[in-house]
């Protein structure tokens, strides 16, 4: 069943006739429980797409439905935002309270939820991102990856059906990136939360069920990670990249090494090459 439905959407930031069209008549659907990655160069329109999902932006043409609710209907904005949470790039801009657990409680408090239920939700959310032991700390004492997981917990405490993450790992160190990504995977696989993730890291995008590539406000290609990342030349043409594992095998193939497919992950690549080389 589709959870988000985007129908013939066009969007521009300024109202003037000649201002640049950011999205050009795009349509697609995201199913409940799916993990979707959105890829595209800077300025391609991918962040604009993400902001359509929780009614931060409403398209001039076309419709966006979240769980059947029209995002253009202002009386539904509150309900839509409690279903779709947004996590942004810089964790420092997203934390408001001076103690971790108070920060996570901020969302549910604003939803007017009774105190004992807030307690329950906050504990559950912090456990889900593996930050429960840090609940009484000050956010500024945490590492980037930990802060970003607290920001995600703040969203989970509102019990959304879907979390949209706009480059959640761009400012993190390698360990922080792994922590955040495995948290996202866990929320998707174990809690059934629909995930839409925008990223410039191809190693992260290969973990998604479905990958969309955006350029100049339209989709260039989409499909499973395997289908999308096998099109190495197309991705490069749109200023994107493929994981080094994929690129290595793509180049070896061009040199005449016979490989029947391209791997997406390091483990897969090593296994394939062992067979060919040994």
């Amino acid at each position: 069943m589709e959870f988000i439905s985007v129908q013939n959407v066009s969007f521009q930031y300024a109202e003037e006739e000649n201002s640049q069209q950011v999205l050009n008549d795009i349509s697609f659907e995201i199913k409940k429980g799916e993990f979707v990655a959105l890829l595209g160069q800077n300025g391609s329109g991918k962040s604009t797409i993400a902001k359509l999902f929780n009614a931060l932006l409403v398209p001039q043409k076309g419709k966006v439905f979240v769980d059947g609710m029209d995002t253009a209907d202002e009386s539904l904005t509150y309900d839509i935002r409690s279903k779709v949470g947004l996590v942004l790039q810089n964790p420092d801009n997203q934390l408001v309270a001076s103690i971790v657990e108070e920060d996570v409680a901020f969302g549910p408090e604003n939803l007017g939820i009774p105190a004992d239920e807030i307690r329950e939700r906050v504990d559950e959310a912090l456990k889900a991102v593996d930050m429960y032991d840090h609940r009484l700390k000050a956010p500024y004492k945490l590492s980037g990856g930990q802060k970003q997981r607290v920001a995600i917990a703040g969203i989970i405490a509102m019990r959304p059906d879907c979390i949209v993450l706009d480059e959640p790992t761009a400012m993190l160190d390698p360990k922080g990136r792994e922590e955040v990504l495995s948290t996202i995977m866990k929320l998707n696989k174990e809690h059934g939360i629909t995930i839409v993730m925008i990223t410039h890291y191809m190693e992260e995008a290969v973990r998604a069920d479905k990958v969309y590539v955006v350029d100049s406000g339209s989709f260039v290609t989409s499909g499973t990670a395997e289908e999308v990342f096998s099109q190495v030349e197309l991705l490069k043409k749109h200023r994107l990249d493929v994981p080094q594992a994929t690129e290595l095998c793509h180049k070896l193939r061009a040199c005449g090494v016979s490989l029947d497919r391209l791997p997406l992950t390091e483990e897969d690549c090593v296994a394939m090459l062992r067979e060919v080389l040994l």
Binding site: Q41, N42, H200, R239, D241
Partner: peptide
Amino acid sequence: CAGLDPLG
């Protein structure tokens, strides 16, 4: 390079 796309 933080936040730039791969070609960037």
